[in-house]
Design a protein around this nucleic acid. Structure first.
Lengths: 233, 233
DNA sequence: ATATGATAAAATGTCGACATTATTGCTCTG
DNA sequence: CAGAGCAATAATGTCGACATTTTATCATAT
């Protein structure tokens, strides 16, 4: 018997995995505030599942450091701090530079072609940034991933992904508006073009320095932004 | 009322966290074979807990990639492969080199002192390697950690720790005997001394190359070792 | 004899219930 | 009126039970 799409979706994965995705999104985009207590009754209502799948999902986010747990006191959203933000962004910049260094060593024609394709999709969407920032972020991220994937290391790519998610939490919390500022955006686009140039020339040192700057500039912006004051409480 | 140590231990953390530690050890040291199915009935007997804490623990190991899950078919120990081993070791070497590069930039006197202390403890145990390999591995790891911690980045240190654990699984599976070979061991010790020298001189490039070699040599040994044949099935 | 299909057995994933622990609110005292 | 102590309330963590799905067994037919 063929099942409806919804049923099929519920059967392909178990409840916990579905909840992991939704809960992660809710934390990353700020629906649940940093430090907020995650009461089981509320979570049950929101995701329409029992406690068992919820605790499984929370256990996974626990390792990813998106929630914290205290015995007999339940789960909380992982708190944010300026220190952690700077550390995550700095680490992410180093990891991305590492990926790029390895990719320049190992990358072949297919790698270059993938970058060109992703860059094209990103450029095409340049004018619609303000209309659909989420779609632009997707293409932006796809572009950077197309570069990093040349390192040809699943392990390293996974580290990179985890750091991206943690960083996107800070980005979503404070940077939404700043990202749309056209001056910042235009500078970003130029950095992308310079990066592509360096990659095709296989200028490793240059490319690595470019990516470091590219990834650290948001954290510098955040450091002086309004949101920071709310962090120091 | 004061509780007995055992009870106190059971109350400080919930069951799931305790099981995480034990289960992780059982997987890392090979009590549960790669690819082996983890039946709930057996796990319940072994750890004396119900399914709920077990599923929580397994969910955490799922993110750490020590187990895999298939819907309605339960959990399995994450399988091993030569490719994954090489990838983990290579990534680990790069991450460790990154830590050391940053540590050389940022490290202060306290950092140097910590290295000297850890190195001393490791040297003192040099003759007892064959007697208590586990204790030596502890001191060896403490030595390397004392170096890496100079990078002053909790995020990066956590990435490093996760990779160490994954690698130690392969090490435990095949390398136990090889590690005790005195020729390999003596070469290892000399590498440590060279590394310390380079660190104190703040010779970044040199130190980073040394650590890469130091961490990649085991994977090269594993590649040609007996265990590999069992991998390709 | 091999393959196929139905039946039985086992295992998973989820929920509600229960005991334990933390938190809140209230009373009583100084 | 403030603060400590105690009762009541709420929330967590764990277990056993149930429905669903997978796996194993076995008879039957080609």
């Amino acid at each position: 018997m063929i099942k409806s799409p919804v049923e099929a979706d519920n059967n392909r994965n178990n409840s916990a995995l579905i909840v992991v995705g939704e809960l992660k999104q809710d934390i990353l985009n700020g629906y649940f505030q940093p430090g907020e207590k995650l009461k089981m009754t509320r979570l049950k209502e929101r995701y329409q599942v029992g406690v068992s799948p919820l605790r499984e999902a929370l256990s996974q986010l626990l390792i990813e450091q998106l929630v914290v747990v205290e015995n007999q006191r339940g789960f909380k959203v992982h708190p944010v701090s300026r220190e952690e933000m700077l550390d995550i962004y700095a680490t992410r910049a180093e990891i991305e530079a590492l990926c790029i260094g390895l990719a320049i060593e190992k990358g072949d024609d297919e790698w270059e072609a993938g970058i060109m394709a992703a860059a094209h999709k990103m450029r095409k969407f340049g004018d619609l940034v303000e209309k659909d920032p989420q779609e632009w972020e997707r293409r932006h991220q796809a572009f950077h991933t197309s570069i990093a994937i040349g390192c040809d290391s699943p392990t390293l790519m996974q580290v990179r992904r985890s750091l991206y998610e943690k960083a996107s939490r800070y980005r979503n919390l404070w940077l939404n508006k700043n990202m749309a500022e056209s001056t910042v955006f235009d500078a970003n686009q130029k950095e992308h073009e310079s990066l592509i140039e360096a990659l095709l020339e296989r200028a490793s040192i240059n490319a690595r320095e470019l990516i470091r700057e590219h990834l650290l500039s948001p954290s510098r912006a955040l450091e002086t932004s309004q949101g920071l004051t709310t962090l120091d409480r």
